[in-house]
Amino acid sequence: MRALVIDDSRAMRRIVSGILEGLGYETQQAGHGREGLDVLDGGWLPELVCVDWNMPVMDGLQFVSAVRSNPAWRSMTIMMVTSESEQTQIVKALAAGAHEYVIKPFTADAIRDKLALLGLLPQEASL
């Protein structure tokens, strides 16, 4: 399974990618929403996208809206991974088309639990 990790912090990209790779994902990284769309435009289509909210160039909410407006990308599951934890922001992200919301700081177990709920744990990780 493939996952795209979008965050303007390299440290956070490494942490999230490390967790997903530990679960058996193949990952790619992008530094903001526009770079994330470039990866998708290039034909590398993941089952899962983990995206931060506050980023330069294109933020996470704009990215979610852009993905949801393209029918070819509808099957992708989007999980916001962000320090934006106001209830109104969470509702806004889910309304735009995100499937799940993980608030930073998080643990590896929290990510794993969310993926299990979404049915997106690679087979070897769910054993």
């Binding site: 320090s83 934006e84 934890s85 106001e86 930073k104 700081p105």
Partner: peptide, 11 residues
């Protein structure tokens, strides 16, 4: 990023 996480939760 540490300031971002602490700040987001303070907010």
């Amino acid at each position: 990023e540490i300031a971002n996480v602490v700040g987001g939760n303070v907010k």
